[in-house]
Amino acid sequence: MPLIELIEVGKSYLIDGVKKLIIDGVNLSIARGSIVAIIGPSGSGKSTLLNIIGGLDSTFDGEAVVENVKLKDLSDVELSRFRNEKIGFIFQHFNLLDHLNCRENVILPSYFSRLNPKEIEKRVNYLFDKVQLTHKMRQYPPTLSGGEKQRVAIARALFMNPSVLLCDEPTGDLDDVTASTILDLFLSIRKDMNVTFVIVTHEERITKIADEIYMIKERRLVRI
């Protein structure tokens, strides 16, 4: 049974009153614990695909099933809970909140859950150790380097023990050495936590760690 399954998924936007089809008839099956890379040029619909899998966009054609849950059947509150418990997001620009320190950024998902303080403390310590930033727990994001910010963002994405990490150009803002460290971290996370990665990118280096690579070509997903 695949962890993620997309069946004939399509998405269009209204731009200046004209309906523009972004993706069409997308079928995808992803097994638990795998790393899948989706490549394609800018504007090809890679991020749209991530938003659909992550429950951020529920107005699409076709069917999206994650962990046996049909996303289109969920209400806004159920979708929010789904994102909170099952999905971790990693963004190109990190999206950390600058007025919160690193620890507060990492525990943000717990604000929307019922985790007890003891469990929160345990997870924080584990994750900061995992991303090797325990010494910077009380620092604020603007004082960190790009690589450190992305490691904090990864810790935040992992905080609720998600099944899936959705990564949108996770190394796009990083230099080669730092990007390589982040990719090593991904492999380590997959090994320790059996997390499934869906990474959209246009960088070739990411494809090297991927188990499967797909490309969006003329609105359709093609395995390469």
Binding site: D76, V77, S80, R81, R83, P109, F112
Partner: peptide
């Protein structure tokens, strides 16, 4: 970001 992390409209 807060919505992506699980915040509902009500939150």
């Amino acid at each position: 970001v807060l919505r992506a992390l699980g915040g509902t409209k009500g939150d």
